[in-house]
Design a protein around this nucleic acid. Structure first.
Lengths: 149, 149
DNA sequence: TGCGTTTAGTTCTTTATCGAACTATATAGT
DNA sequence: ACTATATAGTTCGATAAAGAACTAAACGCA
């Protein structure tokens, strides 16, 4: 296979990925209460799984969205009472984003609502090597991430 | 590995896919002229590779977006002179979307601008089984597509 | 210390997206 | 043929995303 054909495969890969991203996002958001988006869940999940008390800018960078987009997402989460802001004692320009109990349980409930779909998929794909797939995709992701300058 | 862990792998898969989708879209759009989005390119590409002269509704279904979103995308393409509408002789409610020469060459140029990135990625991932990856992802995509009711 | 530069976050504005309501045409059932 | 229903596409309104300009605080360096 020459480089040109290989490039076509890469194109096809991104095409599949784009479609799956859209389908899975739609599915996921249909399990969230009205008015909440994947982005809201993702931020809560990140605060739990990675680190609580991060700054808005840190979150924006983690999700690779502009900081004003993160401002918008966080204001929705704050209005819902799922996060609260505290001043950053080390930097007067900055804030910390802390999860509330309500935010934690919202995230748990969201996972609970999603689980049946994931379990069903896992059952229907018995024997499918998800872990290998994830490993390969992580390589591609790391490459794109590094190329992003 | 039990079902719960397997579900976690599926979750991780969708997570990677979402990130790659965002990164590759941003990269791709940075190669398009200002004001044009992936969706514009995708429609032109679809008219060339799948079938010219389709209806707006057919395109909306192919891309799984609401029909009013497709109206919006098509109006951008029409304003740029990349497609033109003709009445559908078989259905007075409907339209056909036809690619213009300008649309065809815009798509070719877009591919030309993107090629170097794809080639570079293909070179840096020499030996990587893109085709196998695409095959696996296509299975997942087909599943989600079927589940979408 | 003082001042120019950088950084965190918000606000403003434009554009994309999409549900809902609407118009016009087609189809089905009687 | 007549009426009810379904379908193709647009319009309207509300919300999301993101670039640009702005404010306030911090940093660098003389």
């Amino acid at each position: 296979m020459n480089k040109q054909e290989q490039a076509g495969q890469v194109f096809a890969l991104f095409n599949e990925i784009g479609i799956i991203s859209q389908l899975s996002r739609t599915l996921f958001e249909s399990r969230l209460p009205h008015g909440f988006l994947l982005q809201h869940f993702s931020v809560l999940n990140h605060l739990i799984r990675v680190k609580n008390g991060q700054t808005p800018l840190g979150l924006a960078q983690a999700f690779q969205v502009p900081k004003n987009s993160m401002t918008h997402t966080l204001s929705g989460l704050e209005k819902a009472g799922f996060v609260e802001f505290k001043p950053n004692p080390k930097d007067g320009r900055s804030k910390q984003v802390w999860l509330t109990d309500a935010g934690h349980s919202f995230r748990d409930q969201a996972i609970g609502k999603l689980m049946p779909d994931l379990m069903e998929l896992a059952r229907d794909f018995e024997g499918f090597d998800f872990a290998g797939l994830v490993t390969q995709l992580a390589e591609v992701r790391a490459y794109l991430d590094a190329a992003r300058d």
